[in-house]
Design a protein around this nucleic acid. Structure first.
Lengths: 354, 354
DNA sequence: GTGGGATTTGTGTACGTACACAAAAGTACT
DNA sequence: AGTACTTTTGTGTACGTACACAAATCCCAC
């Protein structure tokens, strides 16, 4: 590690003062073209990297980050994202960060609109969005673009927008992976099924569609003779879910593998268990408390996890980097790893450690 | 985030000077019992956390970390650990960290002794150890203990020692996981085999034994009727390996699932591929370049990955925390997640992102 | 060329901690 | 009580950056 070049060194080398270098580093304007060019040359020659610590020390501003995600119910999916966000805020406690949650009900478009409206009104320094309703998100983002407020997506991405940062999984590949697992876990020539939630127009609909496409692609390629049934079941009303699921099972006794393309695998698992149906493999998404329980018991065979905590964590730290150091750091779209969790590796599964 | 309490606040509240608080925070001695108690009380009442940035700024010492691991060959297992270590050093480039590698040949106990000897002679500030030879490691550690030099283990742990920090996986659980995967991936009633390297006395031997135990445990519990063969093959001499593996295949035509309990799965995969043997599922450890290649091709069915990069990364950052802030932070033994990699999720697998 | 406004540049201070050094208090012994 | 020494305590400075403010320079109309 060569001795770090400091701002004063840059200034000396470029024949200007430290103040001017600072102005250039922070795009704060009021710099003559001559100075700018001289400094930029020295900057690139020396490969200057400012000291993150002294930089943070001198920063006295307070930053407000608003987080617009579906209500985080304890132990469910969005709560993991929240946990990651909180972890990051805690990690960066040496910088004044204020976070505000603007939760919305992911099944109620009006609550989403209201929540999003309040965001632009409060003009925060940065926003983290868990996008569910596409057109509402588009509207919010275009407003944020106009206000020059940076924003990050977590969980999924809405086409055509240009977030500062985004974190998601390639859902098609998730679908492929689920298909593969289910295929492995379902011996013999039986059929497979996809269960997805009935309110597909709302709940992370993009994700579900792409997952399904991947799933179908796998079987189309590897066993085109297989019959893939598709069922939608209610994720809101327990009685209705039970009816939907049981009806399906009765009508399709050959099905031995079920993919639930959202986090509600446990609902299906619990129904099957209650009815003593034990010979069906079940794969679903997201390591929620309920899904953990079912994996441990064996009523869910595998779960795909997209590291929601890390997504939240990186969204915060990325936005901070952007705010404080206007680091446009190269990669904007981050595709998370696709983790496979089964009963055996569940006990040690953690998204991050120390 | 409540306004942070600062050292001066603590000093004022405890009726002493900032210098005294500092001495207590850093265990630098020369403090009267009265002052110590007063300060410690205020410290715990206020939940003081020093500012990591200003702390780093004021630190002007240079720290030297020596890394004693088997030679990191590009693209192989130990190289991943090295990558994580380098990543951490880079991340902490605002602190003066000097790292030195004391590589040793993991198949040559004399090189290990020589390497370890040089470490204590150079009296570094901290050491990262990838322990292979148990008794040599014991000797090194007792010397480090005497010199009060903190050290961290990566990859595995030697019993009875007391490292400042350790990172490894529960190898028994890894074995269970491999068994489960192989069981899933091997349809019908065929037999399974374990292949392990012949030089088991040396190479990460602890790991191999525990993996085997987990593997056997799984089959003992779930299908006690299965026949598990065990074979050792050379990992050093290609011709010898090939002979060993082919001989085994010929003598055991019923085997359809092979677990390689180290990172040399690709050797077996390549031999099988070369001979056109395509109906055997293969599961092994560690996401080396060669194993990646085989997963993509389909000649390896799955790989267990123990996040070696993260192990290296956390070893460095943990030791730095210990050195700079003598934070004994609670957990010392870190058991890493057990990742399952198959062809589908390989493309997006990364140990960490931004 | 001079005045005055706009632009550009330089300087000084604050941030919170670590540590060296100086000062003060305590202790033991004559 | 005074001396010599040890232990304890307090103070001042440096770290590298961000930013406010003062100073210098430039530009143009008269």
């Amino acid at each position: 590690m060569a001795k770090q070049v400091k701002i004063k060194d840059i200034a000396r080398m470029a024949g200007v003062s430290a103040g001017t270098v600072d102005r250039i580093l922070h795009n704060r304007g009021n710099v003559s073209r001559t100075s700018r060019e001289a400094v930029e040359r020295v900057l690139s020659e020396t490969g200057y990297r400012y000291n993150i610590h002294t930089s943070a020390v001198s920063l006295r501003k307070e930053y407000r980050i608003v987080i617009a995600i579906p209500t985080a119910i304890k132990g469910e999916y969005w709560d993991s994202i929240r946990t990651g966000i909180e972890h990051a805020i805690d990690e960066y406690s040496d910088i004044s960060i204020v976070r505000e949650y603007a939760y919305y009900n992911q099944f109620d478009i009006y609550s989403c609109r209201a929540s999003f409206k309040s965001i632009t009104e409060s003009s925060p320094n940065a926003v983290i969005i868990g996008p569910t309703f596409a057109s509402e998100t588009r509207e919010l983002c275009s407003e944020l673009d106009r206000m020059k407020i940076p924003y990050a997506f977590v969980d999924s991405v809405i086409d055509g927008l240009n977030p500062t940062l985004s974190f998601s999984c390639d859902q098609r590949t998730c679908g492929l992976t689920v298909a593969r697992l289910l295929h492995l876990m379902t011996p013999g020539g039986q059929d497979f099924a996809i269960l997805s939630s009935r309110r597909t127009g709302n709940e992370r609909s993009n994700n579900s569609l792409a997952r399904k496409a991947g799933f179908m692609e796998y079987f189309g390629r590897n066993c085109p003779e297989k019959n893939i049934r598709e069922v939608k079941f209610s994720v809101l009303d327990p009685q209705e879910s039970e009816r939907d699921v049981l009806k399906f099972i009765e009508e399709n006794p050959d099905v031995r593998g079920i993919a639930v393309l959202n986090s509600r695998g446990f609902i299906v698992a619990d129904i099957l268990e209650k009815r003593g149906i034990g010979n069906v493999s079940l794969v679903c998404f997201d390591l929620t408390d309920n899904n953990r329980r079912c994996i441990s018991k064996g009523t869910i065979s595998a779960v795909i996890c997209q590291r929601p905590e890390l997504q939240g964590f990186y969204a915060v730290s990325g936005l901070i980097r952007n705010l404080l150091y206007n680091q446009e750091d190269g990669q904007k779209e981050h595709l998370m790893p696709i983790d496979i969790i089964i009963a055996e590796n569940l006990p040690y599964y953690k998204e991050y450690l120390p």
